[in-house]
Design a protein around this nucleic acid. Structure first.
Lengths: 244, 244
DNA sequence: GTGGTCCAATGGTCCAACCAATTTCTGCAC
DNA sequence: GTGCAGAAATTGGTTGGACCATTGGACCAC
């Protein structure tokens, strides 16, 4: 039913038509985020267009954060898609200096607090169990690797965003997370980064499990505050060392 | 952090490299928005990459609204580019259904609360005076036009975002505001929309003037809550009327 | 099991054309 | 010279085919 709904549109806007057809396919197959969609070669054959056209279309979606491509593996859905989506690409100038990093942290503080509160209101028992699982993994990684647990830390937060029932939280924060990483790829010696925020992960979880939105919001604010403090200390140290 | 101690090796990042080179070109030539940049064929030749790769890179920029392509004419710069830009593509599922509207409102709730709190911390006396001025204008418009003060209302909020010292708040919320308007231009019979939120504008201002971040945050949350309630009532009414 | 090697699948890149829209130039009529 | 229609060049859009790099599973020796 999916491929047959491909009309003989032959004019321009080929790749746009490809995306429309893909939306139909995702809907028909009820694909969930994380699942793999057909290979580029299959799509090209089924839609009767060149593989390059398929690639251009997928490049658009990739740029919008809707899919993720993994060479040798496939193309995976990253978010829910529908026929009436609104794309709002925000491009903000300046990104590598400390000021803009702090500005993004303030945005994250706002979203993190609200996501935690919504999560406390709405999370299902399964959601809470999943968060608890991520928390355990993170705490174990923290102990065995002496504080190096950023990957597990991130997954814990993602679980909260997902349980908030609002996919926008994960989308927005994920975009900022990328910037965050870009900034921190330069070594700069804040080795104990994240140590201070560690205990708040469990307290946030406890407030969520206790269905206390206000408490969860307050704990999330405290957590981000510790991260911001770490960043400020790191920046100060960096400035100091660069003076020598 | 942990990943940074590992080799973030990346053998293939061609199109990304193309974009970097393009940023350098735009900088070197001091290209302004509206000007045309080199042909795809020329770029491919100069950068020693395939034209396909150039196209993928340009497709990315086009998706981000940085560039506009006109077949037969050329590719034109649409916005200023710099080497450190933060791309935050947001895609909001559906604009016409109630669910996605509520999701954007939750994002706004998060940002509004944080902006109010930051504003209470940082606003200068001039900022506060400006907010007070917008508040007066809004209240007067509200009284003389019997609640139709959405434009003045919006300007009041914008003044707060600006005084927060973080331009991201205004940019993000402004983008959402545009979507909001585009899809809700149909009045949908919530005529007294915004009535309930009216008194909170002054209380928010008072907390800001009193330098009370917590209070300002709480009042902002209340304000958005009333707006959400209005929306829910409106949606319920709409659903009811569509049943007849 | 463990650790390799091999191999098929898949995204990434390249090439050399051709198509379609646009712009520019040419040449003729006046 | 002017004006304008049509040809020609330019430029983004599409095609098909080829090869490379990475991934992940199958298979095998130990």
């Amino acid at each position: 039913m999916d491929q047959n709904s491909l009309p003989p549109i032959q004019t321009t806007a080929r790749d746009d038509a490809v995306l429309k057809a893909l939306v139909g396919f995702v809907r028909a197959e009820a694909l969930q985020p994380g699942e793999r969609l057909p290979t580029e070669r299959i799509l090209a054959e089924r839609l009767k267009v060149s593989r390059n056209t398929v690639r251009e279309a997928l490049t658009r979606w990739e740029g919008l954060g809707l899919v993720e491509r993994r060479q040798g593996s496939g193309t995976y859905l990253k978010a829910a898609v529908s026929h009436d989506m609104l794309h709002m690409p925000l491009t903000l100038a300046g990104g590598n200096d400390f000021t803009s990093l702090m500005q993004t942290m303030e945005i994250r503080r706002a979203l993190e607090a609200e996501a935690a509160a919504l999560c406390a209101e709405r999370a299902s028992q399964a959601d809470i169990a999943e968060i608890a699982r991520k928390l355990d993994i993170m705490e174990q990684a923290f102990r065995t690797r002496d504080g190096m647990s950023s990957e597990e830390d991130w997954e814990f937060h993602q679980a909260i965003y997902r349980a908030s029932g609002n996919p926008l939280f994960e989308q927005i924060i994920a975009a900022m997370y990328e910037l965050f990483h870009r900034f921190w790829e330069h070594p700069l010696g804040v080795r104990d980064f994240g140590h201070a925020s560690f205990p708040y992960h469990r307290t946030i979880y406890e407030y969520i499990a206790a269905r206390d939105p206000q408490g969860a919001r307050a704990e999330a604010l405290k957590l981000i505050a510790t991260v911001e403090d770490d960043l400020k200390r790191g920046a100060a140290k960096l400035k100091l060392s660069s003076h020598t």
